[in-house]
Design a protein around this nucleic acid. Structure first.
Lengths: 239, 239
DNA sequence: CTCTGTGAATGTATTCACAGCT
DNA sequence: AGCTGTGAATACATTCACAGAG
């Protein structure tokens, strides 16, 4: 994936790769807590998270020394520490900009609110949509952004617009004072340094799978691309 | 991120981190092609992809030497080479298992078919859904998996079920002969070696953003978690 | 004896910087 | 001159392996 370097502020002492795994550990810990398990070893946590035990111990050691040698980690305490490190001791209200197929889907998807990211505002520019609502949240016009961000204390903006307007919308979100942007539009957007930004492409993972499976072509599938006549003239020796 | 190691087959000479970026380059190249640009330098490609030029050149060098010194890369030819390397010279029909909020959303999302992953089959176990259709694709019962996989030449199975049944469904997909699985259920699933598998959590990126923004708490947000009474008893020195 | 926490070792990824082609 | 392709250098991440706490 696609984890960048140190994301701007020079504060992070925790490696980016470890940060990216904390949410997985947190999910496992929540599951363990709900099944009344009170203690967990690095080995068990590793199995449930799909990584190896040394990695779990190293990752958790960046947060402090919360385990007990010979015993393991207290599930509830570790969950608290991981949540605190991730900033998930409180909710982060999000706004979704762009309510096409993907935006609507994300607005209805319960997984965000479940993990502490309630969808508090929806904006679009389509007059047919503005004034309506989705998942119980009113749809307002993109132009009202500043007011919405202020009144709803929005922390993170999710961009789910068509590619051609994604950069524009991201710029407006930043101008409205939003400090973090998650971009799902099929284009890379950029922001001024200081704004936390992630570009996510839902189809990337499929394409990666396709790479690793490419030697097993499904029989009978038609080719879409051929080495075209135009690519021939590129002057270089064959091979 | 969340890229694993070498994904099983010992063939890959291309680093996993580079593979994960090829889809981004491909997207940029498609955009350039549609705007009639015929040549692109590593610097320009890097800007559009949101990475640096040295990385672009190194990544592309794993595919071969397709650039022209002093000039740049031929857009159409490079697009072909990248597509070929990713296995995207033909479509990869996918099946979606589980049609709750997320599964339905993915079925309606046009981004998959646009990038060569047509949704050819939908399965669920809910009698109220089976027999109906979504985005023009009939919904069938999970039990018909083997037949569906064979008749529709399914290459990749997408799991979007509730967490408790995700592992079961993944096992059935593998038993039905599917070689790649993309799991969106909020739980880590595992498979026998040889099956290509990616576990994706849509909320992970939000949690990572929350980590990097956690020192800027939205004013007035209520705390959800407190150091609980239970976490106290963990015996270790403070600090 | 069990299991954590962590230095040291190893393995990957990124970046530099420049030779060499156009 | 401009730009690629790539060894060498650096930075980052993972894994090993074991001392030390319980």
């Amino acid at each position: 994936m696609r984890v960048g370097g140190s994301m701007g502020d020079g504060y992070d002492s925790i490696p980016a790769a470890a940060v990216a795994r904390l949410p997985i550990y947190r999910r496992v810990l929540l599951e363990l807590l709900s099944t009344r398990v009170t203690t967990v070893s690095s080995t068990r946590l590793a199995t449930l998270a799909g990584v190896n035990a040394a990695k779990v111990r190293k990752d958790l050691s960046y947060l402090g020394s919360f385990g007990i040698r010979g015993v393991g980690y207290n599930v509830e305490h570790l969950l608290y520490e991981v949540s605190r490190e991730l900033g998930l001791t409180h909710d982060w209200p999000v706004l979704i900009a762009g309510l096409g197929n993907l935006g609507s889907a994300l607005a209805n998807y319960g997984g965000f609110v479940e993990r502490g990211f309630p969808v508090r505002a929806l904006v679009d520019t389509d007059p047919a949509k503005v004034g309506g609502e989705l998942a119980g949240v009113p749809i307002r016009h993109l132009d009202e952004l500043e007011a919405i961000v202020a009144e709803s204390r929005i922390a993170i903006g999710i961009v789910a617009t068509p590619a051609p307007v994604a950069q524009d919308v991201a710029d407006r979100l930043v101008a409205a004072g939003i400090g973090s942007i998650l971009n799902f539009a099929p284009v890379v957007v950029t922001t001024a340094p200081g704004v936390r930004l992630r570009n996510v492409d839902l189809a990337v993972e499929l394409q990666v799978l396709s790479f690793y499976q490419r030697r097993h072509v499904p029989a009978g599938a038609a080719d879409l691309l051929e080495p075209s006549a135009v690519s021939g003239p590129v002057s270089r020796p064959a091979g």
